[in-house]
């Protein structure tokens, strides 16, 4: 039992030391390499605690190596823009002046739902309110709201919902906004398009709508 206590203590101190050396201030915002390091370190720690027949060095050596690689990577990333791009990727503009960049969305494997969730998390409900939305290398979406659009938009009591998403009608959202399927058909006819061509249609309680067509 003493062996387990000693092993756990040694591993705890080593992991704390490693995380301090890796300089993790905000553990919620992982770069890919941080995530890999943390996952590997947590697994390696448990190996020797659970298996007393293995030498402690079987965990200590890999943890120190991973910690070193992580520090080397972060220094290399600081020194070279290219290494940073390879290791962490680059920030991408997902929405520009209220228009979703569908190529970026597809590259990042984002869905319309992800875009709307990111907007709502920043208290933004109208696509026109977004001046620019950037997907950071950590995967977080940062939005800069359009100051002009925010004052120009007449906000309804019921916020906009996606009534059409990726060419599919969302009946539950139609009920919330009080819009009928006939009205949607009229709007689509007026816009000279079909349901399958619509990537996203947002409509609020006052009947204001915004349509984003799929890129051909």
């Amino acid at each position: 039992m003493i062996s387990v206590i000693l092993r756990t203590t040694v591993m705890f101190i080593l992991v704390m030391f490693s995380l301090r050396m890796m300089g993790k201030k905000n553990l919620g915002e992982f770069q890919p390499s941080d995530l890999v390091s943390t996952m590997l370190i947590s697994n390696l720690t448990s190996i020797v605690i659970e298996a007393p027949e293995l030498p402690v060095l079987y965990s200590i050596v890999p943890i120190i190596l991973i910690m070193s690689y992580e520090v080397f990577t972060s220094v290399a990333v600081r020194k070279s823009e290219n290494i940073a791009r390879i290791s962490q990727g680059k920030s991408m503009v997902l929405v520009n002046n209220g228009i979703i960049d569908q190529k970026v969305m597809s590259d990042l494997r984002f869905t319309v739902k992800d875009v709307l969730e990111a907007m709502r998390s920043k208290d933004i409900f109208y696509l026109e309110e977004v001046k620019i939305a950037i997907v950071e290398t950590t995967g977080a979406v940062n939005i800069y709201p359009d100051p002009n659009a925010q004052s120009n938009i007449k906000k309804a009591t019921i916020p906009p919902f996606d009534v059409i998403s990726d060419g599919k009608l969302k009946t539950e959202n139609l009920k919330i906004t009080g819009i009928t399927e006939e009205k949607i058909s009229k709007i689509l006819t007026k816009e000279k398009t079909e349901l399958s061509n619509v990537l996203l249609m947002l409509a609020d309680g006052d009947g204001q709508y915004n349509i984003t067509l799929k890129d051909s």
């Binding site: 050396m21 120190i64 910690m67 070193s68 520090v71 080397f72 220094v75």
Partner: peptide, 8 residues
């Protein structure tokens, strides 16, 4: 970095 380099 130096500590890690030394350890490595």
């Amino acid at each position: 970095l130096y500590i890690c380099l030394l350890l490595f």
